[in-house]
Amino acid sequence: MIQRFANPNRFMRLSAAVVPWMAGATVILGAAGLYLGLFQAPADYQQGESVRIMYVHVPAAWMALFCYTSMAAASATALIWKHPLADLAARSTAPIGICFTFLALITGSLWGKPMWGTWWVWDARLTSVLVLFFLYLGYMALVNAFDDPARGAKAAAVLALVGFVNVPIIKFSVDWWNSLHQPASVLKLGGPSIHPSMLAPLLLMALAFTTYYFWVLLVRLRAEILSTKIRAVRLRQVHG
C-alpha cells in the first residue's frame, strides 16, 4: 500500500485525477454550508446572530488539529520508514495548518469580544492553541533552516512529534481546566448536544475545509515533487 504511493510518478498521475474532485467538493460543500449557516440556521437563544461565527471558527479549529496530527503522522512515517513522500507531505501540510490555526485564533477573538467582553484571555484553551500556532511556525522555520533539505526535514519531523503532545492538551483543555471557552458540543461522549439545524451547516463547513485541505495539499505536493526533479536535473547539469 505504502509502496504504491511511494512512487512519485504514480503519485503525480493519481493526484492529477483527484485534484478536480477535491476542488468541486470544496465549492459545493462550502456553498451549501454557507447557505445553511447564514440563511437557514436559527440565531442562538443566548448568543443571537453572533453564533454564526461558529460555522467558520469551529471547522478552522478542527482543521488546525487535524493538520497537525497529519503532519506528525507523516513525520513519524518519514523517520521510521524513510518514505520519500512523507517528508514532503508533512512539509506541505504545515503552511495550510498554520492558516487554519490563525483563522481559529482570529475568528475566536472576533467571537470572544461580543460574548465574553474581551478579545483575548490567557486561559488553557486559547493559550494552547497559540502554542500550536508557534509549533507550526517553528516547524516551518526549522524545515528550511539547513542547506541539506534532508537534515531540515529530520529536525523538523522530531519537532512535529514532540509538539504533538499539545494536541490532546488542546482537545481536553476545556475539561481539565476552568475556561471561558465552552466545552465540546459535537465531538464528545454521548453524541452531539447541538440542534440538527446548527449541526448540518457546521458539518458541511467542516467537510468543505477538509476537502480544501486535501486540494491544497495535493497542489503543494505536486509542486514539491517537481521542485525536487528540477533540483536533480540542475545537479546533473553541474556534475555531468
Binding site: E49, S50, R52, I53, T107, L110
Partner: peptide
Amino acid sequence: MGGYAAFVWPSY
C-alpha cells in the same frame, strides 16, 4: 446580523 455585523462579517 442582530447588531453583531462588526464581528460576524470580518470573521467570514
